[in-house]
Structures are given as structure tokens and as C-alpha cells.
Design a binder for these strands. Structure first.
Lengths: 388, 388
DNA sequence: CATAATTTGTTGCGCTTGACGGCAAATCAG
DNA sequence: CTGATTTGCCGTCAAGCGCAACAAATTATG
């Protein structure tokens, strides 16, 4: 009905939210820091914090021993037993984990599969694992929801997976399937977007308000963008598909695919091929590249960097971010000659737009998607801790 | 010091702001509609509205005669005598106008110049015109600030014009110059960004939360983007420079400039050339194109559409907007064969991303930049009507 | 033309909730 | 052990919104 914005109740809820978000994002914080951070009154923070504690959403612990003058301030921490179940279905496995409100992974299980899982199978797998965990690791946990990171386009309204090419899912109502299998509210989003969110909140993009994130995987390039501190989803949730872009290619002989898209030209498969591997994880590929002194390898790296630089330059012109975060094989590609990439990007965009632009490698490891997906499940709670 | 967010005072200020913004954007509104729109209580709206009236920011008029049952509701309208001075320096002229809080242009004057104006000259021109107006048209006006729309890159922190190539301004502190010449607070921004803001708030993009705006001018292509209902400025304010992008060009012989950018390939000058004109305003160019049955003209239009479609497809992949607004000669280019352009864009981006995508022509005429610039001047007032 | 129905302004009251100030508590410096 | 400093705790205060009852102004109905 009414969105309580503008009323007193709304203020209260927003203040609770603000505290909980701080505890969630910044980790354990003293009450004193919370008052400083929120600008609220000491007494107000005290009452809000104890309200959150009563709700079981935060723990108030004894003060940390600090070496400063004055009365020690109790530490407020997001309650670790408030948890989200997160799911990442892939071609060869389904990873399921539980993530605490303190953003730490509690349990994690990778279920290898010998065939492509269907949406219904995925839901059943989640329900099964959850039922087992509920009697063991998560006996005392309070599970607030499920977040799914899906390699495909997900409609944000209803979580419908419109198309996940590698899983061969089309218009899959996986959100509803998971909700009815588990009895928990679920959220679904594109995996790369969730990676962007994770890197923004907990990784290389901490505290940065405008960033572009690109991840290079085995099957293509995905991404996400943060504008003004908020993850961009677009109208329907399909934003961030950098891999499908067609960047300019200045040298005609740099092109491999006629009318190809970015991920046709800048691809992990081509890197593997040129170093003579068929399958390899990222460290192995990076090592192989570093070890190789071959001209062909150097050529291919330079070619891919040139095309990537144009794509990044385009993004910089349009979005004027202060940071570009590269993950997966794009991190390997960038790390190989970071200065060259930075220079190429700067050369391909408006001079002022690249001022103060930083290009960094993603920090979070393989848990990135899980942490991002947990944000989906925590979103409601964080936005309004009183919304049951 | 503290940003009063989260306190009661903050609620009050936000509510005042909400009402004023509604009156500003939606035009005159009944108090009844305001209560519905804000979700606040009748009595609250009454008190807020009369507070705004006391501040001289809105007028409360007698009810409009409506044919509906029930007691008529007084109409609240943004006060037209609360005004902004707006300035648009160009190569051949400086346009100065006064815009009311009701978003209507009160006075407008185009001062032709026979040389490139300097920032200091611009400031003097503004101060001179303003002084004259203050004794005539604007005798009873309450001028709250100045907004400048500059064709160049403007740093958002301090309004420094980093580079305006056609005006030949470099690192021009035009904001400070105007502020000290007029004694009014001033804001400066890129002209195309302000065009995007105007089209978003009052033009083809009304009510649309995610849109991309591209304007084709004589000297290039500028643009702006709205994400989640907010104009994107980027870290330093340089966002929206679509004209400097390098989109993929599938057919090699479509390229005119080696390693050229979008505005090298998709250009008004090339259109003029192919129809055999040297100078023409937009209607003249459009008429010439429509009149010409020549193959060369059709070829050039199709070529430019192809390249534009790739650039737009890239933007759609990344931003998933629900609307693309085209202005200037890009509107002419699009109108020539709208279906072809839509199809080409859809073919160049992820299928789901173009679902429900609309491509429209800009609605606001030559006053677009002025109305956008007024938003700069009104921003403070609208965000916090009590902030003196 | 009179009465009913409907919508909305007006008024006074109450309640929620954050700010404020005084005091106590807990630490460190010397 | 004393003073300084920081912070928690508690009682009081007040700003401002919701609410409900009533009044006012219009249309619908017979």
C-alpha cells in the first residue's frame, strides 16, 4: 500500500536499515563508530542497536580492547547465524553454500553433475542439501532466503531465467521452483552482475561509487556496472552484457570473426589455443602464458588487449567510472602488461574521462558469486529490518 | 556538518522537497493529488503546502472546475516568479534566458557574437543582461541561481570547463566568474547532459527511468544517460560522451576515417555534403533529404544508420534502457527509416535487451538546453526548500 | 429544487521517536 | 591515585505526522 517514506515510522526503519547495512558491510563496529558514521545521537544509536539485537539481527559484544582514552564502546556485529542459502548452477556442477549476514561462508558444497541440470532438478538439489544442513551445520541458523547466480539473462521483475545458453534453460521459472521446494523467498540474477556487486561491496571496488566490472569466463565475457554507488540492472535486469558488444577494431587483420562480438575476439579459448592447452584453470593458464616466450602468444595477448581496450574506452566515455575491475582471464590478460592496457584505454577515450581512472584486478576468489548472491537474499532484510 | 538524514527535521525537509518537486515537474496539481502522490496525510500535505506558500515557492490557487463529486481541492503550482538565469554559450552566439520554477521560459535573448567569447566575456554578458532585466521583465522575480550549458567537458565538483573545443576554452573557471559577476550561485554542466535531463523530465523521456539520449549537432554527437531515474554524471561529470566511442563497423567500406570515432562516421557534415548543402538548419536538412531521391543520399543514410545502430546496440547491451531518445540530425536520420533503425539495433544486441525498447525522437525544441540548465540552478532549492 | 452521497479541507489531539543534557562508568596519562 | 576523555545510560522535551470528527463544497438523484 503506502511506502512509509516520509513518515516517522519510515525514519525509524531507515535508521535501523542504515545500522544493519553498516554492520553487514563494514564488519563489527563499535557503537561509537556507528554514531559517527550515521550522524545520529548516541542515545538513538543505543536504542536502535538494542532493537536490532532483540530482533536477533546483530550481536552486541564486549568492547574490543583499544588503546584509546575513554570508556570502551560495545561492538555491534551482524549476527552470523542469520544466513542466506546461495546457489550457482553451472554446466558441470551446482555449487550450494550458506552465507552469514557477516558475509562469511558457513558451508559450501560443490555437487558435480554428469548432465545439464534442469531448473526443477536444481530446486530439488537445493532443497535436499538444505534439509540435510538444517539438521547439522545450520541447526541454529535463521535462513532468510535463497539467492541464485545464474549464467544467463534473468528478468529482474520475477526472476525468470529468459535464456541461459550453456545450461540450455529457456524461460525457466527457477525462482518459483526454488521457493516452493524450500519454502523460502528466493532471488535470481545474472552471475556476472552478482560478481560486480560482490566486488563493489567487498572486493576491489570497496567504497567506489562508479565502476565497471568485466569478468572473463570460459564461455564468454559478462559484467556489471555500478553508477552512483548502485548496481545498474536496467529496465528488466539485463544490463551489463559487455560481451555482446561490438567494439571498433582498428586493424583489419585483428578481426577473427566477421561482425563478431567482443567475446568472439577476446576469448579464453583463443588464449588456451595459443599456449597449446585444451583445459586449464586460471592460474595454470596464467602460468603457461608467463612461461611462454613465444611470439604468437605475445601477438595474441596484444591483439586481445587492443580490442579489449577499445571496449573499455567506450565504457569509460559513456560512464566516466573511477575504476575498472577485471576478473577471470581478463585479469590474466590485463596483468600481463598492465601499463600497456591502461595506456591503450586512455588513448581510446576522451582524455578527461580517463583522468584518475584505475584498472584493477578482481580481489574476491571463487566465492565471489556466492557472496554476491547472498546480497539478493539479504536485500529485503537490509532495506527494512522490521519487514518480517 | 551533519546531513540531517534520518532525523525528524530531515523528514520534514524531504517532504517539503517532494511536494515542491512534484509541483515543479508535474505542473499545477490539486492538494488531493499531492496527498495521493506522496502517500502523506491530508492534514500533513495541507501544512506542508502552506509552508511552501509562505516561503514563496508555490502559489495556492482557487480550485480548478472539475466535473467530479466532492469538495474541490485547491491547486498548488510552482511559483513562476522563482526563477533561474540560464546561459548557453556557443560559437556564434550566447543565449541567455530566465526560466521559472514552473519550467516556462520567461525571457530569452540570443546575443550574436562576431568572435569566440571568452569565459570572462560570457560572465560579463550575463551580468549585463541580468542587470537590465532586473529593472524590466524580472522586476518582481526572485532569482535563485544561474545554470550554464557548455558544449564541452565540465568537471562536476567545481564546474571547471576542462575543454570546450569549439569555444576554445581550456580549464575555464566560468562558474566562479559568473558567480562573482552576478552575485548568484551558479552551476555548469555539459550541454548534451542537460539536454538529456530536460528530455527526461519534460520531454520524450517523461516518467522513463532508464534511457539513453543522443544528440547530433553540427560539431558532433553528445549525449547523456538516465539510470534508475537519475542522470548519470560519472565520477567527475564527464559521462555521456557517446560521440567519442568506437563502435564496430562490420562492412569495411563503410568506414570513412581510419580508427575514427562515432562522430567521424555519423556526422551532419556528411549528410549536408551528400544533399549538396553547406549550411542548413535541421528542418531544411530534413526537407532536402526527403526531397532527394538520389541513390547516394540513400546510401549515406543507410551507412550512417548501420554504424549508429551498432553504437546504440552496444549501449543497450550495457544499460538495458527502455528508451532511446534521438535529437538533432540523429532524429532526422532515425525518422528517415525508423523501422530499419529499430531492426538494426535489435539485431546488434542481445535479444532480451531490446525487448520493449523504444526509440523516439526528442520532443523539446531549441529550449531544451535552457530548461535543462535551469535544473542546475533549481537543484539546491528543490532538494531542500529550507536551505535558504 | 431539495436531499443524499461523495470528496476534501480543517482542527485538535495523541503518539512515536530522535535530540539533548546531566550523570555515571570505564579507560588512559602522568 | 587524580585528572582527562570518551562513551553509555536515563529522564525529559518537542517536532511533526497520523488520525478522527466535523465542516464545506461539489455532483447525483428524485
Amino acid at each position: 500500500m503506502a511506502d512509509r517514506t516520509g513518515t516517522f515510522d519510515g525514519v525509524h526503519r531507515r535508521n535501523l536499515s542504515k545500522l544493519l547495512v553498516l554492520a553487514h558491510l563494514e564488519g563489527p563496529l563499535s557503537r561509537a563508530r556507528l554514531t559517527a558514521e550515521t550522524g545520529l545521537n548516541r542515545s538513538t544509536v543505543a536504542s536502535l542497536a538494542s532493537e536490532l539485537a532483540d530482533l536477533g539481527l546483530v550481536e552486541e559484544r564486549a568492547p574490543d580492547p583499544t588503546n584509546r582514552v575513554g570508556r570502551p564502546s560495545p561492538v555491534v556485529a551482524a549476527h552470523p547465524s542469520v544466513q542466506a542459502i546461495v546457489v550457482n548452477p553451472e554446466v558441470d556442477a551446482v555449487t550450494i553454500a550458506a552465507v552469514g549476514l557477516n558475509a562469511r561462508i558457513v558451508v559450501r558444497e560443490r555437487l558435480e553433475v554428469d548432465h545439464l541440470v534442469t531448473p526443477a532438478e536444481t530446486a530439488d538439489l537445493v532443497a535436499g542439501v538444505l534439509a540435510r544442513w538444517r539438521t547439522t551445520e545450520l541447526r541454529d541458523a535463521r535462513i532468510v532466503g535463497v539467492g541464485l547466480a545464474v549464467p544467463g539473462q534473468v528478468r529482474s521483475d520475477d526472476g525468470l531465467v529468459r535464456w541461459a545458453p550453456h545450461l540450455e534453460w529457456t524461460d525457466a521459472p527457477v525462482r518459483e521452483l526454488v521457493e516452493s521446494a524450500t519454502g523460502l523467498p528466493a532471488g535470481v540474477a545474472n552471475d556476472a552482475s552478482l560478481g560486480a556487486r560482490a566486488e563493489h561491496l567487498f572486493g576491489a571496488g570497496r567504497g567506489v561509487d562508479d565502476l565497471v566490472y568485466l569478468n572473463g569466463g570460459a564461455s564468454g565475457i559478462g559484467g556489471g556496472l555500478v553508477v552512483g554507488g548502485r548496481l545498474v540492472s536496467g529496465t528488466r535486469g539485463y544490463a551489463g552484457e559487455f560481451g555482446q558488444n561490438r567494439p571498433g577494431i582498428a586493424r583489419q587483420d585483428d578481426r577473427r570473426v566477421p561482425d563478431g562480438v567482443l567475446e568472439d575476439e577476446v576469448s579464453r579459448a583463443r588464449l588456451l589455443q595459443v599456449v597449446g592447452l585444451t583445459h586449464a584453470d586460471e592460474p595454470t593458464l596464467a602460468a603457461a602464458i608467463a612461461a611462454s616466450g613465444g611470439l604468437a602468444v605475445a601477438e595474441e595477448l596484444a591483439r586481445q588487449q587492443r580490442i579489449l581496450a577499445t571496449a573499455l574506452g567506450n565504457a569509460v566515455n559513456v560512464l566516466n567510472p573511477s575504476l575498472i575491475v577485471l576478473g577471470g582471464f581478463l585479469a590474466t590478460l590485463a596483468a600481463h602488461d598492465a601499463a600497456a592496457l591502461e595506456a591503450a584505454v586512455a588513448a581510446q577515450c576522451l582524455p578527461v574521462a580517463s583522468e584518475g581512472l584505475d584498472i584493477r584486478v578482481a580481489e574476491l576468489g571463487e566465492n565471489r558469486l556466492l557472496i554476491g548472491a547472498a546480497e539478493l537474499a539479504f536485500a529485503r532484510l537490509l532495506a527494512d529490518p522490521l519487514a518480517d
